[in-house]
Amino acid sequence: MAHSFARPRKSVTLTILMAGLVVYSLFPLWWLLMSATKPQELLSGSFGLLPAGEFALFANISEVLTHQDGIFVRWFGNTVVYVLAGAGGATLFAALGGYGLAKYRFRGRNAVFATVLGAVAVPGAALAVPTFLMFSELGLTNTMWSVILPTMVSPFGLYLMWVFASEAIPTELLEAARVDGAGEWRTFFTISLRLLAPGIVTVALFVIVATWNNYFLPLIMLSDKNLFPLAIGLASWNADATGVGATPVFHLVITGAVLTILPIVAVFLLLQRYWQSGLSAGGVKG
């Protein structure tokens, strides 16, 4: 704990003020949860913040999982693939690269720094259209790679890992390992990796969220429904409710949204301890 002096008195005013903010943050989610318990026809007719009609949550969930031959399950699987390969790759490359930049001096290091730092300021979405144009020339669009490859690059992750590695790994420790005759990569895996863990978890979580929620990139790249991640899949169900010959499935969109949010929130809560220490120790301190 950073400050351990006399515990300040609790403030009711402040608590009420913050409670307002908490309500603002949570009531849309409450609305979502309540809506997920309603059948399609009651969604618009009933008051949003209270349950109405029969309790249809489980019926809705089973319909989500079976609608259009269970494509939701497939989207879920795709999302997991994109997260494991894309976010996993991004985290790995950022950890290696950040470590390399922090702990070694080599020719061209400054150039790498400058390029990567410049890249942090380039909006990812501004890059998405050019990337799409290039990928379409290469015949990569509408493949899983078209989503995975761009996801694997996280200049900000690299930056974060660099800051973290500079702080968390004493250079003396590496020197000691070298004296013992350990190779650079072996040192990395046996000593540095463990010290980098909180930073890695932090970067991983932010890249995972970004990937889990990514909309623009897969929207551009993918046309085959079977390759969609959850975010695009839900949007396409939402679009099904609009148009000629529309089949409104808002109850599925809503229940599907709940099912999409749950895993990511769970991951966050479970790993809370790690990413918070990672954030405070390295990420934003500088």
Partner: peptide, 10 residues
Amino acid sequence: RVSAAGWSFV
């Protein structure tokens, strides 16, 4: 450390 190993990490 001045080393080309840096490159291999990056």
